[in-house]
Simulated scan of single mutants.
Amino acid sequence: MASPKDPVTEASAQKLRLSKEIVLAGALDLVDTEGLDALTMRRLGQELNCDPMSLYRYAENRAALLDGVSELVFNELEIFPHDPDWKAQLRRIAHDLRLLALRHPNVVPLLVTRPLSTPLGLRPLGTLRPLEQILSLLVDAGFEPTDALHVYRAYYGFLYGHILNELQEFIVDPEENEVLLRLGLHRLPAKDFPRLRALAPVLADYDGAAELDQGLTILLCGLESSLTQSVPSATD
């Protein structure tokens, strides 16, 4: 017959099992399944089967949990700042970040909006890593540091815009064969919106990866052109 468990010993074992990594992983799981609003110390304590007060040893408040979740997601993003093919690297990073967003859609608003309310130097170091690495990638490619910052802003502005747009794409009636009806475009006056209605087949056949790639091609070709124009020729 098994001896009864000692409550003190079991509580001590629970404390030993906790770590910052486990707490943040639990927080990310909770956000993934229930959304950002569900993330509280009390709710996370329930998920981890521990006293919520014990979580304060690993995150001083809910804001710290949110920052930790952001860092955890960004840590999944691999960047190679010394890759000589900067265009291929930016294209790969964009597709990888898109896949991250699709895996963690509830975290996307946190990644996009939370940094705007925090001064740059006070943001978690893990969330600044992509900025530093992409700046290095662009400067090594020949961009002036100031221009590299402009490129980064344009790149991430486009990328986040695409991700937010893709996550909000939806069809009114997926069972309807007629594309105008599937998208609800039949409700738009034909005289006022002829071009939008004509694009219904393309809109209904939305492919997030292909759409991202198309936009990246436009963006990267423009950046490459500006870089070429800024490099003095041998005859100058």
Rank of each mutant, 00 (worst) to 15 (best):
F170R: 12
V108G: 08
W86M: 06
V139K: 14
P130S: 15
C50G: 14
D37Y: 12
I134T: 07
L116D: 02
T146L: 13
D96Y: 03
T113S: 10
N106P: 06
N61K: 07
A190D: 12
L149T: 00
E71T: 09
L203N: 07
N106I: 09
L30R: 11
A200T: 10
A59F: 01
L110A: 10
L24Y: 02
G26Y: 03
N177M: 03
E132S: 00
Q133F: 02
T118P: 09
D192V: 03
H82K: 11
A59T: 03
Y56K: 13
Y58R: 03
D29T: 14
Q89H: 06
D147Q: 06
L16V: 04
A190F: 09
L55I: 06
Q14M: 09
K20W: 02
G142L: 08
G35C: 07
P7C: 14
E78M: 05
E71Y: 07
G184V: 08
C221H: 15
L196V: 07
P201T: 01
R123H: 08
R182F: 13
R17Y: 00
P105H: 05
H82M: 01
L181P: 02
N165H: 04
P119M: 06
V31L: 11
P174G: 04
I22K: 14
R123S: 11
F74E: 03
F193C: 06
Y56Q: 14
C50Q: 12
L131F: 07
E166G: 05
A210L: 15
P194T: 05
L223H: 05
R57D: 11
L99T: 15
L183G: 11
R91E: 09
R103F: 04
D236Y: 10
L72I: 00
D67F: 07
G184N: 02
A25R: 09
P81I: 13
L216Y: 12
S226H: 12
L164F: 00
A148Q: 01
V69D: 05
Y152E: 01
